Computed example of a mutant assay.
Amino acid sequence: MKHKTPSGRTTSAELFGELVRQLRIRAGLTQDQLASALPVDRSLIAHIEAGKRRPDLEHVKVFDRLLDPDGLLAEMWGKVDWYAPHPAHPDWFRKRAEMDAKAVALREFQMQVMPGLLQTPEYARALIARDETDASRLEDRVRARLSRQERFLAKDGPAYRVILDECALHALVGDSRVMEGQCAHLLNVARTANVVIQVLPAQRSEPVRPTTSLSLITLPQGREVLYSESVNSGHFVHDLETVRATGRIYDVLRAEALSVGETAALIRDVRERYARDEAPHRCQCGDVAQEQLQRQQLRKLHRNRPRIPRRRPRP
């Protein structure tokens, strides 16, 4: 699908991609050869040349070294509006998108799937395709999701801390290639100074996990808002006590999660399994949640049972 402006004109992303293509052809390289130099999959080069994918700056520097010694591509990269025109978000999500545009910090806990701010285009497309069959609307929704990422994934972006339930790594979205690319993206993003990613192991029965994914959005002047989602609906909580209580829950989750180094090691291991096209591990999140519920019920029974005085033997 070509990404045209409302007037039907070619976007700057497409012009950049066409320049890459012309320079590659002039250098006598195929897409496969250019991909091998990075190294990435050939499909990434095809998407970049079609104006459908924003390349990493480090990749563009490699392009310049191989295709254009004057550094033109790296200079142009910073001037391209990769997501213009910005597609409209769903009405129920628009307020959240507006908050993301001005947030100074964001803390997220994500349960079954990757947060939108960390999804690759392939992962987002496979996920959205589950309930969107129209190809045009599918691409618009993918681009809308990607348009939120650039601000948070920039080196000078807002502080962004993510706790991923381990189930999000093992829940297959698309196929093994999509998941391998998604894991590689997490490892790459985690090197950004403002981004911290931690995984909460599925088998860790404590602490009790929230029943839904949640976001704590810090706005200018320090005001914080709690955001969560249900099916096709977003929910905002502004009550100070509720937000503070959720912040304390989040701090406990963070303390119980793997360290940054342990998280990276786990993601690398999962990525290698996907690279071997192995079936993902069966996630035990549901079993853990059931065990936690049973433990809570036992505690209630213990607290509520009648106290029977016991005769203690005298010394």
Score class of each variant (00 low, 15 high):
residue 2 K to H: 11
residue 2 K to Q: 06
residue 3 H to V: 03
residue 8 G to Y: 07
residue 15 L to G: 02
residue 21 R to P: 01
residue 22 Q to V: 03
residue 22 Q to S: 06
residue 23 L to I: 07
residue 26 R to Y: 12
residue 28 G to A: 04
residue 32 D to I: 04
residue 32 D to V: 15
residue 32 D to R: 15
residue 33 Q to L: 14
residue 42 R to N: 06
residue 42 R to F: 01
residue 46 A to H: 09
residue 47 H to K: 12
residue 48 I to W: 05
residue 49 E to G: 06
residue 54 R to H: 12
residue 55 P to L: 04
residue 57 L to C: 00
residue 59 H to V: 08
residue 59 H to N: 13
residue 60 V to W: 04
residue 61 K to S: 12
residue 63 F to C: 05
residue 64 D to F: 09
residue 66 L to R: 07
residue 67 L to W: 09
residue 70 D to A: 03
residue 71 G to H: 07
residue 74 A to D: 00
residue 80 V to G: 02
residue 81 D to W: 08
residue 84 A to K: 00
residue 95 K to D: 14
residue 95 K to P: 09
residue 96 R to E: 10
residue 99 M to A: 13
residue 99 M to T: 01
residue 100 D to V: 03
residue 101 A to I: 05
residue 103 A to D: 11
residue 106 L to K: 06
residue 110 Q to K: 05
residue 114 M to N: 04
residue 115 P to N: 05
residue 121 P to R: 07
residue 122 E to G: 11
residue 125 R to P: 04
residue 126 A to Y: 02
residue 128 I to N: 06
residue 130 R to G: 06
residue 136 S to G: 03
residue 145 R to W: 09
residue 146 L to A: 04
residue 156 D to Q: 10
residue 159 A to F: 00
residue 169 L to N: 01
residue 170 H to W: 09
residue 171 A to H: 15
residue 171 A to N: 15
residue 172 L to T: 01
residue 174 G to R: 04
residue 177 R to H: 11
residue 180 E to F: 01
residue 182 Q to Y: 00
residue 183 C to A: 11
residue 186 L to F: 12
residue 194 N to H: 14
residue 194 N to V: 15
residue 196 V to S: 08
residue 196 V to W: 04
residue 205 S to Y: 11
residue 206 E to A: 13
residue 214 L to D: 00
residue 215 S to V: 13
residue 218 T to N: 05
residue 221 Q to N: 05
residue 221 Q to Y: 11
residue 222 G to Y: 02
residue 223 R to F: 01
residue 226 L to E: 07
residue 226 L to K: 01
residue 228 S to H: 12
residue 230 S to I: 12
residue 232 N to R: 01
residue 237 V to E: 14
residue 238 H to K: 07
residue 241 E to M: 15
residue 242 T to G: 10
residue 243 V to Q: 09
residue 246 T to M: 15
residue 252 V to D: 06
residue 259 S to P: 11
residue 263 T to V: 03
residue 264 A to D: 05
residue 264 A to Y: 00
residue 266 L to P: 02
residue 267 I to W: 02
residue 268 R to Q: 12
residue 268 R to P: 00
residue 272 E to M: 14
residue 274 Y to R: 10
residue 287 D to Q: 09
residue 287 D to G: 08
residue 293 L to V: 14
residue 307 R to A: 08
residue 310 R to M: 07
